[in-house]
Simulated assay, not measured.
Amino acid sequence: MSPIQNFWNIRLGELKEVLDDNGFTTHVANSSHAAAALVLDKIIPQLSPKSISFGGSMTVVDSGLFGQIKQLKNVKVIDTYDMKPAPEERIERRRQSLLSDLFITSANAVTNEGELVNLDGTGNRVAAMAFGPKNVIVLVGRNKICGDLEAATRRIKEYVAPVNAMRLKRKTPCAVTGTCADCSSPERICSVWGITEKSSPKGRIHVVLINEDLGF
């Protein structure tokens, strides 16, 4: 194990204890592929969901987890990533996902105090993490760890939002300049904040900390 991996193993272990104290069910994985295997081989069999849906996450897709879940038998998968349906159908799938047995996503940031911090465009991911799905799994790369709420919100506004606007080819000032202008663009992706300090009920939210830099 490299010194960098060893350093982050220590950090992730410490953060796991904080998250556990906040009522989250916390796991640590050494890679995105190990995280996907953990979800598929351990967490999902324990939860036995009849329906699974997703909140937008490059980590979930890049780990291979999304593709593997779509192959599961006897599970209804509500595919919110599919861009082929009409906008009304895509919104309806997001509405349906709020009543799924299991919602899988990532977080924009997690603080040293064990808070999950997110900023959404439509709010479906924030809504699902707060209430609705019976269980939630949140995959978090080590690069998303921040010291406190101020650092987390700064990371999201100054880095995460501009990069995602560029990725989604949105017509926003930040997609051009790389700097948040607190715009009023109709294609703005920053609308709804969510700060999850505790898992309620206890254990409902599973957080998988991953010893890799993943997503934005």
Rank of each mutant, 00 (worst) to 15 (best):
Lys50His: 00
Asp41Asn: 15
Leu12Glu: 12
Lys73Tyr: 06
Asp41Ser: 05
Gly67Cys: 03
Thr26Cys: 12
Gly13Leu: 15
His33Leu: 08
Gly13Cys: 07
Thr59Met: 10
Leu12Ser: 08
Asp41Ala: 13
Asn74Gly: 03
Leu38Gln: 07
Val61Phe: 09
Ser63Arg: 05
Met58Glu: 12
Ala29Thr: 10
Phe24Arg: 03
Phe24Asn: 14
Ser31Pro: 14
Asn22Phe: 00
Pro45Phe: 01
Gly64Ser: 14
Ile78Ser: 04
Ala29His: 12
Leu38Tyr: 08
Ala29Trp: 06
Ser63Asp: 14
Val18Gly: 04
Tyr81Glu: 08
Asp41Gln: 13
Ser57Ile: 00
Gly23Pro: 05
Ser53Gln: 11
Asp20Leu: 15
Ile78Cys: 10
Leu40Asp: 02
Pro45Trp: 07
Asp79Lys: 04
Thr59His: 05
Ile78Phe: 12
Asp41Pro: 03
Gln71Ile: 06
Ile43Thr: 03
His33Val: 10
Ala35Val: 05
Ser32Gln: 15
Ala36Pro: 03
Met83Gly: 02
Tyr81Asn: 11
Lys70Gly: 00
Thr80Ala: 07
Ala36Met: 13
Asp62Lys: 13
Val39Leu: 12
Ser48Trp: 01
Asn30Asp: 11
Ala34Arg: 04
Leu38His: 00
Val75Arg: 14
Ser63Ile: 09
Phe54Gln: 13
Ser48Lys: 01
Lys76Arg: 15
Gly67Glu: 13
Val18Glu: 03
Ser48Gln: 09
Ala29Arg: 10
Lys70Thr: 13
Asp21Leu: 11
Val18Lys: 14
Tyr81Gln: 06
His27Lys: 02
Glu14Gln: 09
Leu19Val: 03
Ile44Ala: 00
Leu38Ile: 07
Asp20Cys: 08
Asp20Tyr: 04
Leu72Gly: 00
Val77Met: 12
Val77Ser: 04
Gln71Leu: 07
Thr80Asn: 02
Glu14Tyr: 05
Gly67Pro: 08
Val61Ser: 01
Gly67Val: 01
Ser32Phe: 00
Gly56Gln: 15
Leu65Asp: 06
Val61Ala: 10
Phe66Trp: 12
Glu17Leu: 11
Tyr81Leu: 10
Leu40Gly: 04
Ile78Arg: 06
Gly64Val: 06
